[in-house]
């Protein structure tokens, strides 16, 4: 069995897809924010690997082909950004300032907690890119010497949390403008938050997608500067 899994070019991919599909089915059935297909699929894959004592390295010898697609997929994020270019130009001031302020706030809050909890440099840079899309966040964590799987977990937890609490937090802060709502969702909770923004409305969804890319790029620079503090 060990040799089969290690030698297979598809096992890891199929296992990941099946687990994700189960997550999609559960989401349809219960229609709750907690039923996030990505979260469910990750938990299922981990449970299966542990239960059947499958080495992560064996699983990843084929699952890595899924990760391989991440770089071209991130490059592809330029396409929705280009399609929203007119709206971006029209509200450029509000968009740029608020995403910038939100991103710097994120980095500053993480720096504060890193001091409080005495994080090492590796632990600190692991959390720095936690509010941005996994594709970019993973890259930043890797480049800066963070613990990549923990970064991915923090990013996913952030997204799901943002998805669930988004509407209440925005209501509490009296944020009603659709552009502002979308920017808040995308800047704080990346793609998973954007899924909620899409439910709120078209403008919210578009602005949230825009915030994913913009916050991602600002974080690339910001995380490198903040990385010097610890």
């Amino acid at each position: 069995m060990h040799e089969f899994i290690a030698g297979s070019a598809t096992f890891g991919v199929v296992l990941s897809l099946v687990c994700y599909y189960i997550g999609v089915l559960l989401k349809k059935k219960f229609n709750s924010g907690l039923m996030n297909p990505l979260l469910i699929s990750i938990i299922l894959v981990i449970i299966i690997l542990l239960t059947f004592k499958i080495d992560y390295a064996d699983f990843n010898s084929s699952a890595k082909y899924l990760s391989w697609l991440l770089t071209p997929a991130t490059v592809s994020l330029a396409i929705p950004l280009y399609m929203e270019l007119d709206r971006l130009k029209k509200n450029i001031k509000a968009i740029m300032i608020s995403i910038f302020v939100g991103t710097v706030t994120s980095l500053a809050v993480i720096l504060m907690f890193a001091f409080i909890f005495h994080f090492s440099h590796a632990q600190y840079v692991t959390f720095l890119p936690k509010s941005i899309t996994t594709a970019i966040g993973m890259g930043i964590s890797e480049e800066m010497g963070g613990i990549v799987p923990i970064t991915v977990a923090a990013i996913i937890v952030t997204g799901i949390l943002g998805n669930i609490i988004g509407e209440s937090v925005l209501k509490l802060c009296k944020v009603t403008d659709p552009i502002a709502k979308g920017l808040a969702m995308g800047t704080s909770a990346h793609a998973i938050g954007t899924a909620k923004a899409m439910e709120m409305g078209e403008v919210e969804g578009a602005m949230s997608s825009l915030a994913i890319v913009t916050a991602g790029i600002i974080t690339v620079i910001g995380a490198n500067l903040f990385g010097m503090f610890i």
Binding site: I42, Y56, A73, S76, I79, A153
Partner: peptide, 20 residues
């Protein structure tokens, strides 16, 4: 591009399972 973006979530599974 839209296809790649649509299937993006599953691309994160292998890295996240590395939590093990």
């Amino acid at each position: 591009a839209q296809f790649l973006i649509a299937i993006m979530p599953v691309m994160f599974i292998p890295a996240a399972a590395g939590l093990i």
